[in-house]
Structure formats: structure tokens, C-alpha cells
Simulated assay, not measured.
Amino acid sequence: MSHHPTVEKLRSLRLFGMATALAEQQAQTGIDQLGFEERLRLLVDREANERESRLHNARLCRLSARLRRAKLRFPDAVPEDIDYRSPRGLDRTLLARLLTGEWIQERQNVILVSPSGLGKSWLACALVNQACRQGYSACYLRMPTFSEEIAIAHGVGRYAQLLGQWARTDILVLDDLARAPMSAQAWRDLLEVLEDRHGSRSTIITSQIPVENWHPTIGDRTLEDTILNRLIHTAHRLTLAGESMRTRRNGLTSKAVSE
């Protein structure tokens, strides 16, 4: 009996690994020396391996798509490359908890505060990269970009659509909050975004300015209180301090060259 119809039937049943393995067995000399159970085991193993490979490739494709949509400032920032040796006050215990993704399941926020050069934006991107691996969607925005997109959306009638898009995103990163002046309208828009996300999605904020010093930048006590209320009560705080990592690395490089 020819095996060709069996190969076709396996393919019609979407058992592509078994079909390929059976076709290969037909072309092998001496394959009949193997017993039925041994040949069947080879077919089943091939099917299992190919399914696992397809599943792995599909996961990689979905991860790649999530990272592409996130538009991270540092797309190569990954948890495995986090620098724990530099003296910057990094809370390893808290960071380890954040990397589990529990804070996202609980719809909590993260606030990263540090002077320039200590890697807060990079750490934010590493947290998002890990979250994307765990199946969450993300969007990264520097605050000038946020203000610009909001202003354009107002002008072209896409404001509600844009807010809806951000509201459905699992993690929204707002990088460098309160560093540069924003209009009163931009602060009100930010509040609208945070209102939509409060209790339903997670937000990561990075800033060079301590939270308690945001008020002069916002310029409206009521607005400030409401924004902080939406952010800090369910937020994990990572505060970094120390010498700029860029300065230190440049100094080490210069020293190595001079020596």
C-alpha cells in the first residue's frame, strides 16, 4: 500500500510534522527494519518538535510586534543587562518584584526619579521590555512628544481617539515629567490620560525632579493634587542618586587611555 495518500491526509489534518517525517521515512532504505511503535514514536516526536518550534516563533513574532509598537527610547534595554554594580542606590529587591510583572496585574504605577545620567529612562525601557515578554502592550512617550501629540490630536479632531488608544495600552511610559514647562492645557490633558488609566492600567513616570517639587512646574495646586493622587498612591518609587554613569565611564576610559 502506498503511503502517499497517508501523507496527504496527515497534511489535511494539519499534522505537518508527522507528514514530513513519514515522507522522509519512505525515502530511507532499511526503515522497514524498525518496528511499528518505533516508527510511530519518530513521527509523534517530529510533530511535537515542530509544533513547539512554531509556537516559539509565533511568540517571538508577537514580542517583536509589541516592542515595535512600544517605540522604546532604548529598545535593547533588557533586565539581563541591568547594572547592579554602579553605586546609584538601586533597590534590587524592589526591582526584582517589579520584573515579575505583579505590579501590572495589580494596575499599579512606577515612579523613577534621579538626576540625569543615572539610567532611569533605560531602566524604564528594561521594565517595559520585560512586560512585553510577559504579553503586555506598551507605549513610550517623552513628555515633549506627549504634548505635541495631544496638541495635534486637538487640532485634527482625534483627541478622543488618542485618549482611547492610550487607555487601552497596558503600560504607558511618560519620560522626563516636569523637566520642561508645559502649558496649562497640556497638564489638564495629562490628568485626563491618568484619569482614564487610574485603577485599570499601569503608568511609568520618570523625572529628574523629586515628586514633592513638581508643584512649581505644574503651577496649579488643585491640578497638582489631583495628578499626584492618580499617580503616587498606587506607585512603587525607585529613587537613584550618585555620580552620572556617563561621567564615570568617560573618566574610566580617559584614565585607561592615559595609563
Rank of each mutant, 00 (worst) to 15 (best):
R158N: 13
R179C: 04
R107D: 07
I152Q: 13
I82F: 07
P144H: 03
A70V: 09
G164V: 10
H154G: 04
Q185N: 06
I82L: 11
F146P: 09
A70P: 12
V110W: 11
L162C: 08
L123C: 08
G199D: 11
S137R: 12
L72A: 03
V128E: 00
P75S: 06
L177V: 15
L191S: 02
N109D: 13
E195C: 03
T203H: 09
D175K: 01
L98F: 01
A151C: 08
A153N: 04
L194K: 05
R107N: 15
V113A: 10
Q130Y: 00
Q105E: 15
A167K: 13
S200I: 08
P87V: 01
A124L: 05
L72S: 07
I171G: 03
A151I: 00
L163Y: 00
A186G: 03
D176E: 15
A138D: 05
I150R: 01
A77V: 05
I104W: 00
L177T: 01
A138G: 08
R142F: 06
L72W: 10
E192M: 09
E102P: 00
P144M: 00
R197K: 09
F146R: 01
L99P: 11
T169Q: 12
F146G: 03
S137H: 07
P144W: 13
W166E: 01
P144G: 00
L141W: 11
A126T: 02
L177W: 08
G155Q: 14
R68Q: 14
Q130E: 15
D170A: 13
A180N: 12
E102A: 13
I171P: 11
S137W: 01
V173K: 00
A184H: 10
I204T: 04
I82R: 05
R85F: 11
W187T: 02
E80F: 07
A70M: 05
L162E: 10
L194E: 04
A131T: 08
R92W: 00
G164W: 14
R201I: 11
R97Q: 15
A126Y: 11
L190R: 01
E80P: 02
S200L: 11
A124G: 11
T203I: 04
R107L: 04
D76S: 14
I205R: 01
L94F: 02
N129I: 00
Q161F: 11
P79H: 10
Q134H: 07
L90G: 08
S147H: 05
D189A: 06
R168P: 07
C139H: 10
G164P: 13
L112D: 06
L163C: 05
G157A: 07
L90R: 04
L99Q: 09
P79N: 04
Q134M: 13
Q185G: 04
K71N: 14
S200Q: 14
R142G: 13
D189T: 08
R97W: 04
V78N: 06
L163I: 14
A160R: 14
A178P: 09
I205M: 07
R97L: 13
Q165L: 10
D76F: 12
R201Q: 15
G101K: 02
R179G: 00
D83R: 04
R107V: 06
I205W: 10
R179K: 12
